[in-house]
């Protein structure tokens, strides 16, 4: 290809100030795939999505879940999503922004959802992740605990777990931990 390089070098010297249509950095394949995921979202009424940085930044967004069933009925829970340029090779990073008394969500907002970590597959999408999160509220499970205390209470005394959840959502202490109101 050396002849080509030679020709191009000459062209460059000639056209140093000519071109106006210079190439621009294109969207990554990850951004395009995310665009597809977002434009095909089909969320239940209890979940809404918003884009704090406007309509052209899809890589960072927020999801609000208002469970319509179960222990967490009446609560409002905010999650932040961060999507990498090599999505879907890598799962989106999801954090809970609402402090919640939940066996599978710790007080720092880490979420134990298998499809966000060990079971992520590129065929999954944003819709499946949001459904997965929704599912955590309708069916919290004590077998994969991130909040050890909450999991123990749910396992041993579901009635007490329920009243703890109500107290936390209304804004109050469960044990030593204060939970801001989220109803």
């Amino acid at each position: 290809m050396i002849k080509l390089f030679k020709v191009k070098e000459k062209q460059r010297e000639l056209a140093e100030n000519a071109s106006g249509g210079a190439p621009v950095k294109k969207q990554s394949a990850g951004e395009l795939r995310l665009h597809k995921d977002i434009s095909e979202l089909n969320l239940p009424k209890s979940c809404t999505i918003s884009f704090p940085n406007g309509k052209d930044d899809l890589m960072n967004f927020e999801v609000v879940i208002r469970p319509d069933d179960g222990f967490y009925l009446g609560g409002t829970f905010l999650f932040s999503f961060q999507v990498s340029p090599i999505y879907p090779h890598e799962a989106p990073k999801v954090k809970s922004k609402t402090k919640v008394y939940h066996p599978n969500i710790d007080l720092e907002g880490n979420v134990c959802l298998n499809i966000l970590r060990e079971d992520w597959k590129p065929v999954l999408n944003i819709n499946t992740v949001i459904y997965g999160l929704y599912h955590l509220f309708t069916e919290p499970n004590y077998e994969d605990p991130l909040n050890h205390d909450a999991a123990a209470v749910l396992r041993e005394n579901p009635k007490m777990f329920e009243s703890n959840v109500r107290r936390a959502m209304a804004g109050g202490y469960v044990g030593q931990t204060f939970f801001p109101r989220c109803m």
């Binding site: 969207q27 395009l32 095909e40 969320l43 809404t48 999505i49 918003s50 884009f51 309509k55 052209d56």
Partner: peptide
Amino acid sequence: ASITHRGKNLYMQAPPVLEEMT
């Protein structure tokens, strides 16, 4: 169709918030 050009979303079918904006 949902359409994107150089990182700008020209039209989005969903979610409703983006459909409205585009």
